[in-house]
């Protein structure tokens, strides 16, 4: 009896040690690369540590108090949301429209797909230079074209009223191909029979077909594209840093750029960590919200 029980418990022990051995590398990597850094951010946010300093002291929620009393932080927060609210619908609608157009005709499909996907593959830092040349107030192609057509021009990246929209357009241009490719895959997955049924049932016009079959069946793809685009827009940093440095007058300063300036410009690591925590909470909340809202209206067949 006892030997039996001992044998079983030894077997258990060896099984669980095997388990740990197998899970070990992944668990260690997870701990070292994600969990510990995240925890350290939460911790740093509670201190007055300056980047590179040898000492620091615990300040409790002081960083958060300062942050929420700072009008510049609110401005950055507001800019971020406005930017996301332009980029997400812009990307989804144009991506969907282009996917529908490309799918509707077989000719040159691969070319269009590759052409629209190119900006997504390219380094935005390099592309930003091209955009800067394009948007230059006097010798930029855009303004020259506008003035040739007799339309009003603007100093796109230096005018507080246009800078955020301009950055949003660049982001749409970049994410468009990604959304398009996903939508094209989604369109391919719609059963042919449903379109046939729509034909026989009399849903013939483009809008009727979109509403009866295409859009509802694209629900899961739509959910995915919206979430991914929103997250990517939230963490925009490269265009701001290269093209505007948050200016003019903080009109294009967004959360991640503020975080960067606080942490590595002013070396206020504690404050930067507090912004990171706020950023993290926003991302998590947004994801949960989207999941909940859209899951109810999405139909996984």
């Amino acid at each position: 009896m006892t030997t039996d029980a001992q044998a079983t418990s030894m077997e258990h022990a060896s099984q669980s040690s095997h388990g740990w051995l197998l899970a070990g590398p992944a668990a260690f990597a997870l701990l070292a690369l994600i969990i510990l850094p995240a925890l350290s951010v939460f911790f740093v946010a509670l201190t007055d540590w300056q980047f590179g300093a040898r000492t620091f002291s615990y300040v409790g929620l002081e960083n958060y108090h300062e942050l929420f009393a700072d009008p510049d932080f609110y401005k950055s927060l507001r800019n971020t949301f406005v930017y996301v609210l332009i980029v997400v619908p812009g990307t989804v609608l144009t991506g969907l429209a282009i996917a529908l157009l490309v799918e509707s005709d077989r000719t040159l499909r691969t070319f269009y797909r590759a052409a629209h996907f190119l900006p997504f593959m390219a380094t935005l830092a390099a592309m930003a230079v091209a955009w800067e040349a394009l948007l230059h107030p006097t010798i930029g192609l855009l303004n020259q074209a506008l003035s040739d057509l007799g339309l009003p021009t603007a100093n796109w990246l230096r005018d507080p009223s246009t800078v955020l929209v301009t950055l949003a357009v660049i982001a749409i241009w970049k994410n468009l191909g990604f959304a398009m490719v996903l939508f094209m895959a989604g369109l391919k997955a719609i059963p042919r029979d449903l379109y046939d049924a729509a034909d026989v049932d009399g849903a013939v016009g483009a809008t009727d077909r979109l509403r009866t079959v295409t859009l509802p069946m694209l629900g899961p793809t739509m959910l995915f594209v919206v979430i991914v685009t929103a997250l990517r827009a939230l963490e925009t940093f490269d265009t701001v840093n290269i093209l505007t440095q948050g200016g003019p007058a903080r009109a294009s300063e967004m959360l991640l750029y503020t975080l960067y300036v606080e942490s590595f410009g002013y070396l206020q690591a504690g404050r930067g960590a507090a912004i990171t925590v706020v950023f993290l909470i926003i991302v998590v909340l947004l994801t949960l919200l989207q999941m909940r809202v859209m899951d109810r209206r999405v139909h996984y067949s």
């Binding site: 029979d193 449903l194 046939d196 049924a197 034909d199 026989v200 049932d201 009399g202 509802p216 629900g219």
Partner: peptide, 21 residues
């Protein structure tokens, strides 16, 4: 003529019901 104008109805092997309705 389009199926709509032929006054036919069709039942498909997959049933082809609109899953969201």
């Amino acid at each position: 003529r389009h199926p709509r104008q032929r006054d036919v109805a069709m039942v498909f092997q997959s049933y082809a019901l609109y899953p969201h309705m």
